[in-house]
Design a protein around this nucleic acid. Structure first.
Length: 433
RNA sequence: GCCCGGGUUGCCUAGCCUGGUAGGGCGAUGGCUUGCUAAGCCAUUGUCUAGCAAUAGACUCGUGGGUUCAAAUCCCACCCCGGGCGCCA
C-alpha cells in the first residue's frame, strides 16, 4: 500500500510511475483517491470544529453542576450537536472507506531499473550460471523418475486428497529434509535468525502482505475461524513485527522462515497439472528482511546472492531474470526470479522469487522504525526471497542428476544429510526391463 | 470449551464502585544549573488535520458497537494475556 502522506507530498511523481503499468483503471483510481482525500480533509476540519463546540458546552455544564447551578439551558443547547457530528462523521467514513479501498488496490511504485515489458516473455536475463547437462540418453521428467524409483505417488494422493497433491516416499522424503536442513544451516551461517512460524494466520495479517486479488486466488480459509492456512512464511514473518516501532539500531533484521506452504492455485488449470512442480502444499525455506529504506537495494542483492550460492553448491544450472513491468505484480517494486534448468522439460523454470517490496508491506502492516525515542518514525522496507522451495528443487535435482541406469545422484553437499548415501536407486536394485 | 483475574500514553501504576473529559513514577530527549556528598530544576514525550511558521483544534484508556449534553468509568459483543478446571499429541 502506498502511504497517503507520501502521495500528498508528491502526487505527480507517483502518478507518472503508476502510468508505466499501462492500465487506465489504476490512474482513474488514483485520481479518485486524490479527490476523496481532499473532501475527507475538508470534512475532518468541520468535524473537529463541531466536536470543539460540543466540548466547550459540555465543560460549561460540568462547571454549572459543580457549583450546584441550573444547567438545563446549556443542556438543551448541547442536545443539538451530536446529530450534526454524526452526519459529518458518516460522510467522512464513506470517503475514508473509498480511500482505503483504493489504497488497498493500488500497486507499489516500481523501481527505475525494472525493464518495460508486457508479460513474462519480456523478462530480462541478467546472468546465467552452469551449463545444461548433456545426456547421452533422453532425459526423463521427474514424474517418470519418481514413479519408476517409487518416490512419488500421485494417483493415491488424488484418491485421498484430489488433484495437485502427492505422497513423497522413501529416499525422496529424506532428500526433502536434507534440503531443508542444508538450507537452514546456510542461513544460520549467514547470520539469519531461524523462525518456525504459525501455520495459520488471521486475515488482517495476510492483508498486510498481499494484494486482495491474490488473497482470494491463493489462500485457504479455515472454516468458522478468522484463520487462513499459511501460503508462505513471508506473511508470518512480516506479521511478526506488524504494528511495531523497531529500534533503528536493530536493523537490518534478517530472518529465515521454515514452513509448509498451502496454496489454492486457482486459475492455474492446464499449467503444470502433473507431478510435484505446482502443488497445493510444499515446504520452503524463506529469507525475509526488515531494513532501512536506503539499504533495501543492497539487501535485495544479498538475498538473490544467497539463493544463487545455494543452487550453485547443489550444482543446478540456472539463470536470473529481472522481472519486467508487465509481470511484476502488485507488491514488489523490483523482483528477480531464479529459474533452474529442467532437462525433463527442456526449459528454465522458476525456483526462487526474490522481491524488494520497499514500503508497500510496511505501510499496510504498519512496521516503522526510529533511531532515538523522540525521532519521527519512518516505514521500514521489507524484502523476501525463497532460499529453497523443496519440492520444486527436488524436481530440479531429480532431472539434472539422473543417470543412464535410472538412478539419481545425490548432490555432494546433501550427502552428509543423507547419512552418507550418494545415490537413489530403486529398492532391490535397478528396475528390470 | 467452562470459571475467575487482568489489558490505561515508550515502560510501570492511579482513576472504574459513585460518569464531568487521564494524575503520579521510571525511562528517553532538549535546556538550565553545577561552590551543600553527582545530584537538582524546567520543558518535551502517541495519532491526525489546518498553517510557510510559531501555533490551534481534534482524537487516543485491548477492539467494535450502544446509552448520555458528557464514557477509561455504565451496558452489549468480540480479541488477547495470566491462573484454575476439562480435553489432549
Amino acid at each position: 500500500m502506498l502511504d497517503i502522506k507520501v502521495i500528498r507530498e508528491n502526487p505527480q511523481a507517483i502518478r507518472e510511475n503508476l502510468a508505466k503499468r499501462n492500465d487506465a483503471r489504476i490512474l482513474e483510481m488514483f485520481d479518485e483517491l486524490l479527490k476523496c482525500d481532499q473532501e475527507w480533509r475538508r470534512m475532518f476540519t468541520e468535524a473537529g470544529r463541531l466536536r470543539g463546540s460540543r466540548n466547550r458546552v459540555t465543560e460549561d455544564i460540568a462547571k454549572l453542576k459543580k457549583h450546584g447551578l441550573d444547567a438545563s439551558q446549556k443542556i438543551k443547547e448541547a442536545e443539538q450537536i451530536p446529530a450534526m457530528i454524526k452526519a459529518v462523521e458518516k460522510e467522512m467514513d464513506e470517503y475514508r472507506k473509498k480511500m482505503d479501498d483504493i489504497l488497498m488496490r493500488l500497486p507499489n511504485i516500481m523501481d527505475d531499473t525494472v525493464p518495460f515489458g508486457k508479460d513474462d516473455a519480456d523478462n530480462v536475463v541478467i546472468r546465467s550460471w552452469g551449463k545444461a547437462a548433456e545426456f547421452k540418453f533422453k532425459p526423463k521428467d521427474h514424474i517418470d523418475l519418481g514413479t519408476e524409483l517409487d518416490l512419488i505417488d500421485i494417483e493415491r494422493a488424488a484418491k485421498t486428497s484430489g488433484a495437485r497433491f502427492y505422497y513423497l516416499k522413501g529416499d525422496l522424503v529424506r532428500l526433502n529434509y536434507a534440503l531443508i536442513r542444508y538450507g537452514l544451516d546456510l542461513m544460520v551461517k549467514r547470520g539469519f535468525t531461524p523462525i518456525q512460524p504459525p501455520y495459520m494466520l488471521k486475515r488482517e495479517v495476510i492483508s498486510g502482505a498481499v494484494a486482495l486479488s491474490e488473497f482470494e486466488d491463493t489462500i485457504y480459509k479455515i472454516e468458522d475461524e478468522d484463520l487462513f492456512l499459511l501460503a508462505t512464511a513471508e506473511h508470518a514473518l512480516l506479521g511478526l513485527h506488524a504494528g511495531e516501532i523497531l529500534d533503528g539500531k536493530s536493523l537490518p533484521l534478517r530472518y529465515c522462515g521454515i514452513s509448509p506452504c498451502f496454496r489454492k492455485e486457482a486459475g492455474a488449470h492446464g499449467r503444470d497439472t502433473k507431478g510435484i512442480f505446482r502443488v497445493h502444499q510444499f515446504e520452503k525455506v524463506e529469507q525475509f528482511v526488515f531494513c532501512r529504506p536506503e539499504e533495501s537495494p543492497k539487501e535485495h542483492e544479498l538475498l538473490i546472492q544467497n539463493a544463487e550460492e545455494f543452487f550453485q553448491s547443489l550444482g543446478i544450472p540456472y539463470h536470473i531474470v529481472n522481472v519486467c513491468t508487465g509481470d511484476l505484480g502488485t507488491v514488489a517494486a523490483k523482483k528477480y526470479d531464479l529459474e533452474a534448468w529442467l532437462p525433463g522439460q527442456g526449459k528454465y523454470r522458476e525456483e526462487v522469487s526474490c522481491s524488494n517490496c520497499t514500503a508497500y508491506q510496511s505501510v499496510r502492516s504498519n512496521v516503522r522504525f526510529r533511531d532515538r525515542p523522540n525521532d519521527p518514525t519512518r516505514h521500514v522496507h521489507t524484502l523476501n526471497s525463497t532460499l529453497v522451495a523443496t519440492e520444486r528443487t527436488l524436481v530440479a535435482i531429480m532431472e539434472n542428476f539422473q543417470q543412464e541406469d535410472g538412478s539419481i545422484r545425490i548432490p555432494d553437499v546433501l550427502v552428509p544429510y543423507m547419512m552418507g548415501q550418494t545415490e537413489i536407486r530403486r529398492a532391490g536394485g535397478p528396475k528390470k526391463g
